[in-house]
């Protein structure tokens, strides 16, 4: 392994450990001064976001320049629609398999989606931040841009980054669910497509960010509408 690869690997490892532990760390730190609740979660997410944007500012700048010079609105729209259709197709297939395997309607929602929905009931603003900003921009940088720096082989990168990101969607929920592997495969398929969109478009992080933003916007709007009429 070259020195650069070792450095990138160590950099990702530190970021990954920070990503896994910052929520708990800030929760403990703020509880020492008697503060708790969603505001603390928001502040810790915000601080982590600032750190990630600072660490990857050069990559973000480079990708933005590439987006401005090589892509126009029509081209971006075509790419986004193409990948969104594939993701919707995957969602429909897995939704159908879920409904065939399990007739209990509650179980048709993955644990992570259930937690996102619970977050909506607790705080609308924080949920919007988590689903449309943090989940889209920061997680994409951590699980794609950062891993891409470590794994230069495109095929291995697509598989490994999707595996890691899918695992993250599963491990914070109940691990005793009968549909755990099906949920894992569903997330893996989603992230596989997003990773493909990244490598097929000059490793430009803005492409999966836009696709994921629009994709997340749909369940977010549905949840808000259901809350309003509900």
């Amino acid at each position: 392994m070259s020195k650069n690869s070792i450095n990138s690997f160590i950099k990702f490892l530190i970021i990954f450990i920070c990503y896994l532990s910052y929520s708990k760390l800030f929760e403990v730190l703020f509880s020492l001064v008697g503060l708790s609740g969603l505001l603390i979660n928001f502040i810790s997410d915000l601080l982590f976001s600032v750190l990630i944007v600072f660490l990857y500012k050069n990559n973000i700048k480079k990708d933005f320049v590439n987006l401005k010079s090589n892509y126009n609105l029509k081209k971006i729209l075509k790419i986004v629609i193409k990948y969104l259709l594939i993701i919707f197709g995957i969602g429909i297939i897995f939704g159908f398999i879920n409904s065939v395997i399990n007739s209990n309607e509650i179980m048709l929602i993955t644990e992570n989606t259930l937690q996102v929905n619970m977050l909506f009931n607790s705080s609308l603003l924080y949920s919007l931040f988590k689903a449309l900003i943090f989940g889209v921009i920061i997680e994409e940088i951590v699980f794609r841009e950062a891993i891409e720096e470590v794994i230069s082989n495109k095929k291995i990168f697509v598989v490994v980054s999707s595996l890691i990101y899918a695992s993250m969607n599963i491990i914070f929920g109940s691990l005793e669910s009968n549909l755990l592997w099906l949920n894992f495969l569903q997330y893996f398929a989603f992230y596989f497509v997003l990773s493909l969109s990244y490598v097929k478009n000059d490793n430009n992080i803005f492409i999966p960010i836009v696709i994921k933003f629009i994709y997340n916007l749909i369940p977010t709007v549905i949840t808000i509408v259901l809350m309003v009429i509900g």
Partner: peptide, 9 residues
Amino acid sequence: DIFNNLAVV
């Protein structure tokens, strides 16, 4: 579960 919210909580 067609529209999963792709954000880790």
